[in-house]
Design a protein around this nucleic acid. Structure first.
Length: 422
RNA sequence: CGGGGUGUGGCGCAGUUGGCUAGCGCGCCGCGUUUGGGACGCGGAGGUCGAAGGUUCAAGUCCUUUCACCCCGACCA
């Protein structure tokens, strides 16, 4: 992509109505556009990041036999009445509306009931299980107060997966597989080292649910962690969990964190509530077992910005960066332009995502500042100097020194390894 | 939902105790000079001051209502 053609622009001024670091930087750099409080649109730059995050999640979900689908945002009221969750006193984040004929419908804040209802039609016997489905969907939640930029909006993208099983043991095994898949996801997203599987409250049907929490100053949760033992407990359930785990409170370190994933074991509760039964080996009708697994895609994006940004701007991990390289020719000499055009073509052909700053009017400082603000992992400079020496100047976003390399080495270094097939 | 705060060109801001054609920085357009960390000069475009109502000879400025946005708290499968 050429910078001259990208419709978004960077800005030196941060918007006054945003305080959170993630929103300020994402807006200044042109990744998101604020539509209203807690509601953000994603520009081509922002969408590339979201898609990169989704790709990683998708690969890992597929690897554990998740099947991707997509549900709807309009949901029938009756479904939710069965589980008492249509009631605003039970679920206080509903957006509700009506069809022209006055039929009440809800706007998806979750898809648990609708997914189960759909499964009713396909799952009749233990032979149809297990099954695991997931989607990337927009959730609409009428939060009293939006805050923290894209980390807690009224409209956001979530990956939610649901697994159905014939018995508790099968669910348990799969649940543990998902935990491992989630760990791989957070590692690949670059936040693995600071992300903990956390004991949290899970309502009546699970003793504890598991949250995935990433240490992050901008987060809303408080965690007590033991780095050595890899233990983390949400403050909400500290006393119970300490008893359960046999650790002392004063061994634990208190940190702020953001929830980046949450998994629940519903057991047979939802199945019984909704009367979705399967036939077992003996031909008897039995409730099935359900678990759900969420990852806040847009929230993860915000957490990554919060965690890695420096005083110059965003710092994307290579795995989610919208582009791998920021290519900045300096000056207007025809040799420089020709070399840059050529390299742009060569890198693109090699599968490297390049943001090519082809603006001839922009000065060096402007290009460098944009490269930094945008958080592109590598910057390549081409100038009269580099052309003369037949080298390229490469600088990782996180380092202050540049290094001279020849073109072949640069391409070799930056070209992606082929993805594993799933 | 309780408390606090803010709305003035695309963005960030200033506008004295009400007073004359509403300014500044960034950005934008044109011309020229520049060109390794956000250049400079000259010339331009762009605002019914969130909205509605009121007070006044006169309202960005005062009053009322309302909307939006932000922060703290509460809330948060």
């Amino acid at each position: 992509m050429r910078v001259s053609r990208l419709f978004t622009k960077t800005s030196k001024n941060a918007p006054a109505d945003e305080v959170s670091k993630n929103a300020q930087l994402l807006i200044r750099a042109g990744f998101v556009y604020k539509v209203m409080a807690g509601v953000y649109a994603y520009t081509p730059l922002g969408l590339r990041v979201l898609e990169n995050i989704k790709r990683i999640v998708r690969e890992e979900m597929n690897a554990i036999q998740g099947q991707e689908l997509i549900m709807t945002n309009l949901q029938p009221k009756e479904l939710w009445e069965v589980t008492t969750r249509w009631d605003d006193k039970v679920v206080d984040v509903w957006f509700k509306t009506r069809l022209k004929d006055e039929t009440e419908v809800g706007l998806a804040w979750s898809h648990e009931e609708p997914i189960m209802e759909m499964m009713r039609q396909y799952i009749e016997s233990y032979k149809d299980l297990p099954v695991s489905v997931y989607q990337f969907q927009t959730k609409l939640r009428n939060e009293l107060r939006a805050k923290s930029g894209i980390m807690r909006g009224r409209e956001f993208v979530m990956k939610d997966m649901y697994s159905l099983h014939a018995d508790a043991k099968d669910l348990e095994d799969y649940y543990n597989k998902v935990i491992e898949a989630y760990k791989r996801i957070y590692n690949r997203l670059g936040i693995g080292d600071d992300t903990y599987v956390t004991f949290a409250s899970g309502g009546a049907f699970t003793k504890f649910s598991h949250e995935f929490q990433t240490i992050c100053e901008a987060g809303e949760d408080v965690l007590y962690i033991h780095r050595g033992k890899n233990i983390a407990v949400n403050e909400e359930v500290l006393d119970e969990a300490i008893r359960e785990l046999g650790v002392k409170k004063d061994e634990l370190e208190k940190v702020k964190s953001a929830e980046v994933g949450n998994i629940f074991n519903f057991g047979t509760e939802k199945s019984m509530q909704m009367d979705i039964l399967i036939t077992d080996h003996q031909g008897k009708r039995q409730p099935l077992y359900l678990a759900s697994y969420g990852i806040g895609i847009t929230r993860v994006m915000g957490v990554i910005v919060e965690k890695f940004a420096d005083d110059k701007g965003i710092v994307w991990p290579e795995s989610v960066a919208p582009f791998t390289v920021y290519l900045a020719p300096l000056g207007e000499s025809t040799d420089v332009i020709a070399e840059a055009d050529d390299l742009y073509k060569a890198l693109t052909t090699a599968g490297v995502a390049v943001l090519y700053d082809d603006r001839t009017v922009a000065r060096a400082g402007e290009k460098f500042a944009d490269a930094d603000l945008l958080g592109i992992p590598y910057r390549i400079v081409i100038s009269d100097k580099t052309v003369a020496s037949k080298q390229l100047e490469l600088k990782p976003r996180t380092e202050s020194h540049t290094q001279l390399m020849d073109r072949e080495s640069v391409i070799k270094k930056l070209a992606p390894t082929p993805p594993r097939l799933l």
